[in-house]
Design a protein around this nucleic acid. Structure first.
Lengths: 208, 208
DNA sequence: TTGGATATGTTAACGGCGTAAAGTTTACAC
DNA sequence: GTGTAAACTTTACGCCGTTAACATATCCAA
């Protein structure tokens, strides 16, 4: 038998280069800038060469989005490091990280949550691969420590997620500054999140 | 002088026909189905004829979206009819109408809130033309009646809006059924909204 | 009445898009 | 050396938004 010379197939490099170019193009100019020809030009290859590695454009985008998601979960993980479990601060840290990711990776975020019926998913699979469970565990800890009142953790996760997601998508709809003017002042997403935190956490606490 | 034969200029009919065809195509197949050539084919006219009435595609889309917005405000107005002012029920009715519009006019909703930097807007101009003020007045009434605690009405409007918008966009990201499975059951947007209402309203009430 | 502007359309064409088909080069197993 | 499979190119098709040039109808002023 032939000893496998462990040199990786040259094509694999190309695949990585395609994904990286696609990721960069997406970040720089949004979905509109993400064309097969543009990607190919960056990689230094013909547009049709891409079809050796990806079934079609949608498949490629799916892969790029998947990479973006890992990045997203990285934000969440980093956010709660050093913040004591069971505290509402930890919940807020997660929310802030969600916002930070969206603002620092706008095009990624947009594409991730613009899965226009192309790729039907169950809602909790979106931030899965650790994201959802991270969120959920933080909620459970907060309930057990008494920081928030006991109820269905999944419902609470979805509630908090809804809140932060809504804030981000609304502000992202109002490019270019992603800020909101109300009562005369301009507020950024993190500032608004801070102000809303009062309502949100209050709603989760025991009455009286 | 020639007596004015009151026949309206044929061109105006064409403009209306273009807008209606565009609206229908958008509703049927989303932004992807909305091409100048497809619109023209429906109207029975050449694609370039459209440029007599609209500067370019973006301009046309803006007009279509504007029509959609009027429709949206119509949903909101209808929702609070017959519901007593000052009640939290009125707030919930607005939220339910928001959700209903999004689910019954998905493509409209998507396009309205996907103003990808093309048309920078201040956030409160989005549901303006009556929408925002409607929302705000409902909040003010609820504060004055004591249904919710007194605080900055604009902040509360944004808070509630954030909540319902987040719920809808999250569920719309999970086509085709726009439902969420959690703890084993499938919940629709209105059902989830109902469950979240507890948290939301509780957060806005006075403590104790 | 006529003639020129204006409004309302047309067809042809440009460059860009995703992608299919066919052909070419390269690497390697037997 | 030959066959085979992978990696890649060229060419081409039918879409797309948009421009330019041209046709026709309508209206008003002289």
């Amino acid at each position: 038998m032939a000893t496998r010379i462990a040199e990786p197939v040259r094509g694999t490099d190309t695949e990585v280069a395609i994904l990286e170019s696609a990721r960069d193009l997406l970040a720089e100019g949004g979905l509109a800038a993400l064309s097969m020809r543009a990607i190919a030009a960056r990689v230094g290859v013909s547009a049709t060469a891409i079809y050796n590695y990806f079934e079609n454009k949608q498949d490629l985008v799916r892969r790029v989005v998947s990479l973006g998601f890992e990045r997203f979960v990285g934000y969440l993980r980093a956010a709660i490091e050093g913040v004591p479990p069971g505290s509402t601060e930890r919940l807020q840290a997660l929310g802030q990280a969600y916002i930070r990711f969206a603002l620092e990776n706008r095009e990624y975020f947009r594409v991730i949550f613009a899965s226009h019926a192309d790729c039907p998913t169950d809602i909790e699979e979106l931030p899965a691969g650790g994201g959802y469970n991270l969120f959920r565990q933080t909620v459970v800890d907060a309930m057990e420590s008494g920081a928030i009142r006991r109820s269905d953790p999944d419902l609470v996760v979805l509630y908090l997620w809804t809140h932060v997601h809504g804030l981000v998508t609304l502000l992202l709809s109002c490019e270019p500054n992603a800020r909101c003017r109300h009562t005369g002042e301009k507020l950024s997403a993190p500032e608004l999140f801070g102000r809303f935190g009062d309502f949100v956490i209050n709603g989760l606490k025991d009455r009286g």
